[in-house]
Write a protein that binds this DNA or RNA. Structure first.
Lengths: 343, 343
DNA sequence: TGGTCGCCTGAAACCGGTTTCTGTGAGGCA
DNA sequence: TGCCTCACAGAAACCGGTTTCAGGCGACCA
C-alpha cells in the first residue's frame, strides 16, 4: 500500500466506478451516493492514492504556487522577508518558489521562466530590469516589495523617509550633533536610496550642510566593520555620529568602535534601521527604526493571491506601511523607562 | 503579439503544420525540414509563444523543481544554505521550492505535499519526523542536510566532531584553560548535538570534568547576548572561556562581554563555529571552525538531481565534508601572520 | 520499371487530473 | 398507470504539452 504510482483511473478501476466519481469524492464536489463514496474512499485509503499535483494544476489552470525574487540573501532582513511571504503563502496552500538573482547574468530570463510556473510573483525593488518586470506583469500578477515598480505595478513599501527624517532631525536638533556620516549604498536598493535622501533632507530642512557622499558598503555586519575601519581607523577626524542604513551595519560599526576603545554614545553616536532583536540587547542598546518587515511580504502575498483569484481586478496601487522611531541608548538618549528593550 | 495564451495547437494552426512538428521545432528534437522549421519559428516568434510549464512537466513526468525544507530562517548559516542550494538548482534549470516548518503543526503534511510537486527534496536534519521522512523518500529522492536520516536515506554533513574536538582540546591543552562553558541547544539540531558531544568528549579525553549542562539558547546573535547576560551578569564566578555553537552566538557573547568592560581574550576566551565573514573582522578576531556551508546544500542538490535522473540508482550513502579549525585572537592565540583575516 | 530504404510529416495516444453532458432509474404526483 | 422531476453515475472532452506509430514521398538501386 501507499504506492504513489496510483492514478485516478487506476483507483476507478479498483473501486469499480468511473474516474469522474473518484474525482468527485476526492474533491468533495458534486453528488455522490453513500455507497459509491464508501467504495472510493476504501480504495483510496487502501492504496494510498493522492491526486497528482501536475494533473490537477493543468486542469485547474493554476499552479498553486507563488514566486519570490530577491537579489541575494544577506542578513536578518531577508530572512524575515522570506518568512513573512512563506507563512502567508502556505496558509493559502500555495507553495513558494524562490529566485536569487544576485550575480547571475540571465536573471531576467530566469524571472520570466518563473512567471510560467507560478500564479504570481513578488519582486524585491531594484532586483530586475523594468522591461523584464513589465513583461512578467503581462503574464501573472506582480507586486514590488520595498521599492516602486514601473507602470501601474502595485508595490508594498515601508515608510523609509518619514522615520529617517525624524531620526536625523533628532540627532541634529535634540542632540545638537554635527558632522554625521551615513553608511550604506544608495545605489544598492531603493530602501537605502530613500533613507539617504531623507538623511540629506533633514540636514537641508535645518540649514545644515550634509555630507556629499555616503560610506557606500553592503548591508551586512561585516560591512559595518569595514565602515568602522574606514571611519575610525585613519587619522581623519572621526564623525560625531554614524547613521547606518540598517541594524546589521550599525552592529558592525558598534563592535568596531567598542573594539577600538571608543565609548558609545559619549565618543560616537550610532543608529541603525530595522530594529532586529539584537538591537535592544547590545550595550549600549541601539537607536533604530522599527519596520514591519514580515508584514511587507505577507501583504504582498495577499495582494498576489487576491489578484490571481480575480483576474479582472484592478491593481491595488502602492501601499506604504508605517515605521516607528525607536530611541535607545546609542544616540545619547537615556535608557527607556521599563526594561529598556523597546519590544 | 506576445500573448501568453498561445498553445501548441494554436501555433500549429497558424503555421499550417501539426502539433508534433511545433513540438519538435520548439524542442530541437527529431527531423524537421528547413521549410517547416522556418514557418514554425516564424509563428512562434510572431506570437511570442513559449510552451506551458505544466503541460511539459506532465508529459515529461518530472517537475523541474527541487524542494528545500528547513525549520526556520535564522542567521547567515541558513541564508548560505539556501543560496548554495538555489545556485546549484538553477544551474540545472530547476526551480526551488522552500518550506519553513518552524512552529507549524502540520509540517509533516506540508512536506508530503511538497513531495508531489518536486523531483526531490533536501531536508535539514531534525526538521521533520522520521516517519514522514521515510514516506517522503518513498515518493521522491531525499537527502538529509546537516544531520542523519533514518533508513538508508543519504545525507550530507559537515565534520562537526573532528574540529570541535580539536578546538576544545586546543583551549584545554594549549591555553591551559579550565571551566569552559558551552552555549547552544543540543536538542535544537543535530549539528549542535554533535558539537556538544565533541566538546564533552575532548574533556574526557584529557581527564577533565566537563560542564554537565550547556547554556541552551537558540542560534542568533540576540541569543548570544542573552547567554552573556546569564554567564557574566550574575554574581556567579564567570567561566574562563565560552565555546559557542555558532559564530552568531559568539558575536553576541563578544558584544555582551565588551559591553561589560571585559577584555577578550585576557578576561574571557570566546570561540564560535562557521567562520562567518564578520568573524575575521571583529576585534579581537574570532577563533572558530570553518565549514563549507554552501557546499553542503549544493552537494545535496547534485545528489538529488542525479537520483532524479537515474531512478534505479542506489542512494549515495552519507557524505561528510571537511571542516577546518581557524585560530584567531579571541582564544588567546597571537594574530595570524599576514593580514590576519584568515580568509 | 519495380522495389526498398530513409526522411519527413501528421494523426492519435498519452501524461493525470477536472468538468460537462448525457442518460438512467427511482420516486412523487395526477 | 403514466408522466415529470431529480439524484446520481459514467462516457467523453478538455487542460497543454510530448511521443509513438504509420504512412507518403522521393531517391537510389537492380
Amino acid at each position: 500500500m501507499g504506492n504513489s504510482r496510483m492514478t485516478v483511473r487506476e483507483i476507478a478501476r479498483l473501486a469499480g466506478v468511473s474516474v469522474a466519481t473518484v474525482s468527485r469524492v476526492s474533491n468533495g464536489t458534486g453528488q455522490v451516493s453513500e455507497e459509491m463514496r464508501r467504495r472510493v474512499l476504501e480504495a483510496i485509503e487502501k492504496h494510498g492514492y493522492r491526486p497528482d499535483h501536475l494533473g490537477r494544476a493543468l486542469a485547474a489552470g493554476r499552479h498553486g504556487a507563488l514566486g519570490l525574487v530577491f537579489p541575494g540573501l544577506s542578513g536578518p532582513y531577508f530572512t524575515e522577508l522570506i518568512q513573512g511571504f512563506e507563512s502567508e503563502a502556505v496558509g493559502s496552500r500555495a507553495s513558494v518558489h524562490i529566485l536569487c538573482t544576485h550575480l547571475r547574468s540571465d536573471s531576467d530570463d530566469q524571472v520570466l521562466e518563473m512567471g510560467r510556473r507560478v500564479d504570481g510573483v513578488a519582486v524585491m525593488g531594484g532586483t530586475i530590469a523594468d522591461e523584464a518586470l513589465l513583461r512578467l506583469a503581462g503574464m501573472v500578477p506582480v507586486v514590488v516589495v520595498a521599492g516602486e515598480g514601473p507602470g501601474d505595478i502595485p508595490s508594498v513599501r515601508a515608510d523609509n523617509a518619514g522615520s529617517m527624517l525624524a531620526l536625523t532631525r533628532h540627532l541634529l536638533a535634540d542632540h545638537d550633533l554635527r558632522d554625521l556620516a551615513f553608511v550604506g549604498n544608495p545605489a544598492g536598493s531603493p530602501d537605502v536610496s530613500e533613507r539617504w535622501a531623507a538623511f540629506r533632507g533633514a540636514h537641508h530642512d535645518l540649514g545644515i550642510e550634509p555630507p556629499n557622499e555616503p560610506v557606500a558598503v553592503s548591508m551586512q555586519q561585516a560591512d559595518g566593520l569595514l565602515a568602522a575601519e574606514q571611519l575610525l581607523g585613519g587619522d581623519a577626524p572621526r564623525p560625531a555620529g554614524v547613521v547606518c542604513a540598517n541594524d546589521e551595519i550599525a552592529l558592525g560599526v558598534l563592535v568596531g568602535a567598542l573594539g577600538r576603545g571608543l565609548r558609545v554614545p559619549q565618543d560616537l553616536v550610532i543608529t541603525g534601521f530595522d530594529d532586529v532583536p539584537a538591537a535592544a540587547l547590545v550595550t549600549p542598546s541601539l537607536t533604530t527604526v522599527r519596520q514591519p518587515v514580515r508584514e511587507l511580504t505577507a501583504e504582498a502575498a495577499r495582494l498576489i493571491l487576491r489578484a490571481a483569484d480575480q483576474p479582472g481586478d484592478t491593481p491595488a496601487g502602492s501601499l506604504v506601511l508605517p515605521t516607528e522611531l525607536v530611541l535607545r541608548r546609542s544616540c545619547g538618549c537615556p535608557a527607556p523607562p521599563t526594561g529598556g528593550t523597546g519590544r
